[in-house]
Design a protein around this nucleic acid. Structure first.
Length: 271
DNA sequence: CCCAAGACCTGGCGGC
DNA sequence: TGCCGCCAGGTCTTGG
């Protein structure tokens, strides 16, 4: 589920409920997520006040005085804010309970998500240390992508999905960005001009910004913190639309595999 | 260093 | 109705 727009939507949604609040209880019902949830998480977190909820790539960072709670939602995770007690349902793996009756609940069917405690400066943690620039920052430019792509024979789609190159471009928005930029997703990254990378950088920024503005894409099981579905899916131009006419030329959108991932594009409009 | 493939999980769907 | 194979939003890890 969560691509960067969904994670950002969740960040914005939960921060007003938990910023400035003190953690009073932590319940981990399923410690086996992508990595084991630290056994001492509750003792680290209880009594701490959340100073802010930040996002780096698709990681959510709940900052406290003494450390940071890192949350990743994997493929199928989501967070809800409960303002009334509610019995945990299937795949509700963990609750962070705050003073004032607020509960942050993690649900993750596939358990590819993570819940980790980071001491010290989170930027130095191995999961975060080697990440590329944020796609919405000025650091992402055509010039930057062009420089990074020199000599690379990898297809451009997996290239822009590499978090060391740029973070936050997931499988849906990689296809959408390349469609908007008119670039064939299978083209070798090192064989794209500076000018075309300029188009791609702009496309990535636009696609992600529009999705954030729309509140995130819905596919299957996404709900925001209130349980309402997002509604960006209708605006997707190519993802999930194999066989449908291209909005530009009318030719059928095709689906191929690239780096083990489904990839959608228009053979006519993308070169 | 670069790249491809494998690994981790559950559940929904189509086909027989 | 039941079983089987395939597919799904991520990304770290391994092996060539």
């Amino acid at each position: 589920m969560p691509e960067l727009p969904e994670v950002e939507t969740i960040r914005c949604g939960i921060e007003p409920f938990i910023k400035g609040r003190r953690v009073i209880q932590v319940s981990v019902r399923t410690p086996r997520l992508r990595w084991p949830v630290p056994a001492d998480l509750a003792s680290r977190l209880c009594g701490q006040t959340v100073q802010g909820v930040e996002r780096r790539a698709k990681y959510l960072l709940l900052r406290t005085e003494v450390g940071t709670l890192l949350i990743h939602l994997g493929m199928s995770g989501f967070l809800r804010i409960l303002q009334q007690p509610q019995p945990p349902g299937k795949h509700d793996h963990a609750d962070i309970e705050f003073a004032g009756g607020i509960c942050l609940r993690l649900n993750d069917v596939r358990r590819f998500g993570a819940l980790l405690w980071l001491d010290g400066d989170p930027r130095h943690h191995s999961l975060l240390a080697d990440l590329g620039p944020e796609p919405l920052s000025a650091e992402l430019s055509g010039d930057y992508l062009y420089q990074r792509s020199k000599g690379r024979r990898l297809a451009v789609k997996p290239f822009i999905m590499d978090s060391r190159v740029v973070v936050g471009v997931g499988n849906i928005y990689a296809s959408e960005s390349l469609f908007r930029a008119g670039i064939d997703p299978a083209r070798a990254a090192g064989r794209i001009s500076l000018a075309r990378y300029g188009c791609l950088a702009t496309a990535i920024r636009q696609v992600l910004q529009e999705a954030i503005a729309a509140g995130g894409t819905t596919l299957r099981d996404f709900s925001d913190q209130h349980g309402r579905p997002g509604y960006f899916a209708q605006q997707l131009q190519v993802y999930g639309r194999a066989g449908e006419p291209c909005s530009g030329c009318g030719q059928a959108i095709v689906k191929i595999q690239l780096g083990q991932r489904s990839t959608y594009f228009c053979r006519q409009c993308q070169r």
